[in-house]
Nucleic acid binder design. Structure first.
Length: 492
RNA sequence: GGCGCCAUAGUGCAACGGUUAGCACGGCAGGCUUUCAAUCUGCAAAUCCGGGUUCGAUUCCCGGUGGCGCUACCA
């Protein structure tokens, strides 16, 4: 049999933002598609009229794009395809695979809807227990329908036998049909449930591999039954383990940031986030962890997806960010920095043009000291603007020596007279002065750094001088002199 | 409660019958140095418990425990 190119899909429902678990599922689908040269489809599952929030769709799409995930087809919306599901439901009804259920909806739809607490049995139809409507004969059904009673459509699960399927991650699965309840296909509102719409769409869209969160594993047999009733072969399934919070419970708001957009705003690079995410539940096969998108695509396979839930480890995510902040080619990094500076209102137009190389140089100087993109804005204030405060702690630490004012004045003179303005001549000027004054170079270096950027923690001095330029260095030096005196004044 | 899945350092992954159980993050301690980072070196740290199977179990089987999932006219 000729192997067909696989078709996969990511199917978010717009009831919230794109969260990290969904993002990871999308990523695995996308990686699989690219690795197999298949097709990646995006489908929005918005059949829950109550919880659906259409305004969230755009954000989900943006977050996917931010991660570098591009879809080949879609986005399709299930709300546009309701006729398809209704048609399937009535076919199932006609073939006897399903039946109308006139029971009132389970009580939990109410205002104080409660998940059953721990230890308590779930309300609603217990497993194994069949709905009485299952056994209504056709005249009884007709009469109830004739009375205008609202009804849902339930699938008639076989009472014996087993249902099995293949899962590329979890292997061969098989469950007793007796354990499967007669699940609802179509609500009394006429809207399909997930179980119906997902199968109808996966079929209609020719999905060959269903890659999704392991929370769907238990419900998969229901869908397999549906495929069978619809006369179609089931696709291959691949359930990926869940991502948990540090307390090992499902990732949720109380674990802090949980939406992808929040991480983007916090200043994580999509490259770093993607790299971190793919390593949750998958490994490259060897000890390599730093993997760019291309390499990840080359190496990805469902066979090497883990079956164990993974805990989201923020500190490792930050480490990845530091790695990418440092290793990304400067041209790839600059647009992110620009975006951060713009957002902070610190962007200057000349950096897009003639001053671009200068900006690149400055960014290169400070990038080893950043963890998040926002750190660039902190540095920008000290580097790109003369209007900064001297940190009290920095003054305290490096402006102790009583002769500093005098020495910095001499330094300004020496720098002013330096024949060249580069790292080495600045270095030489300062060290010669230190020697002449009989102090360690470090003393002067640290004091000067505070004078130039106002902070104790900053990039190496001489490179900083080069980036700032001679005029600005001399200005800032002179400006610091009275402050140094003032700083000395209070102490006897 | 029922059914199911999972189980290697604190965390993420390796080892898929034979290794001193490997790597990475984090932690700790050093080196480098011009502050802080980055970087380098070293250290501590794990096979959930109990039974089998086997010459030999992290690995296979059974039981227990724990975590998670499903058990909705949510997805």
């Amino acid at each position: 049999m000729a192997t067909m190119k696989p078709r996969v899909r990511f199917a978010p429902s717009p009831t919230g933002y794109l969260h990290v678990g969904g993002a990871r599922t999308a990523l695995f689908n996308w990686l699989f598609a690219r690795n197999q040269e298949g097709t990646f489809i995006l489908r929005v599952e918005d059949t829950d009229a109550e919880r659906n929030r259409p305004e969230l769709v755009q954000g989900i799409l943006n977050d996917l794009r931010w991660l570098g995930i591009e879809w080949d087809e879609g986005p399709f919306f299930q709300s546009d395809r309701l006729e398809l599901y209704r048609g399937a439901a009535s076919r199932l009804l006609n073939s006897g695979s399903a039946y109308p259920c006139f029971c009132p909806p389970a009580q939990y739809a109410g205002a104080d809807a409660q998940e059953p607490g721990e230890g308590e049995p779930a309300a609603g139809l217990a497993a194994r227990q069949r709905c009485p409507c299952r056994n209504l004969d056709s005249s009884q059904r007709e009469s109830k329908i004739g009375q205008g009673l609202p009804y849902a459509i339930r699938f008639r699960v076989p009472e014996s036998g087993t249902t099995g399927f293949h899962d590329d991650v979890f292997g061969e699965r098989e469950v007793e049909n007796a354990e499967i309840e007669d699940f609802v296909l179509q609500r009394s509102s006429g809207l399909p449930t997930y179980q119906l719409s997902v199968v109808v769409d996966d079929l209609a869209m020719g999905i060959s591999h269903v890659i999704r969160g392991a929370d769907h594993l238990s419900n998969t047999p229901k869908q397999v039954l549906l495929y069978r009733a619809l006369g179609a072969p089931a696709p291959v399934f691949a359930h990926v383990p869940l991502i948990l919070g540090p307390d090992r419970t499902r990732l949720s708001k109380r674990h802090g940031a949980t939406s992808v957009g929040a991480y983007a705003e916090e200043g994580f690079l999509p490259e770093a986030f993607r790299n971190f995410l793919v390593l949750l539940g998958w490994s490259s096969g060897d000890d390599t962890e730093l993997l760019d998108a291309g390499e990840t695509i080359r190496r990805f396979s469902l066979a090497s997806v883990s079956r164990t839930n993974a805990v989201f480890d923020r500190s490792k995510l930050e480490w990845f960010n530091v790695q990418y902040l440092q290793k990304l080619p400067i041209d790839a990094l600059l647009p992110y920095v620009e975006q951060a500076l713009r957002r902070a209102g610190l962007w200057r137009q000349e950096w897009a043009g003639p001053e671009r190389p200068w900006l690149a140089h400055a960014v290169d100087l400070i990038r080893p000291r950043t963890r998040l993109l926002g750190d660039f804005t902190t540095w920008a204030r000290a580097f790109f603007s003369d209007d900064f405060e001297y940190e009290p702690a920095a003054r305290e630490k490096f402006w102790k020596d009583g002769r500093l004012r005098d020495m910095l004045e001499k330094l300004a003179a020496a720098l002013g007279a330096a024949p060249e303005w580069d790292h080495d001549s600045c270095d030489r000027a300062l060290r010669e002065l230190a020697a002449a004054e009989g102090v360690k170079a470090g003393l002067l270096i640290n004091a000067t750094r505070v004078a130039l950027v106002g902070r104790a923690v900053a990039p190496p001095l001489f490179e900083t001088m080069v980036v700032l330029g001679r005029d600005r260095v001399l200005d800032r030096l002179r400006r610091a002199l009275p402050v140094i005196s003032a700083h000395r004044a209070p102490s006897p």
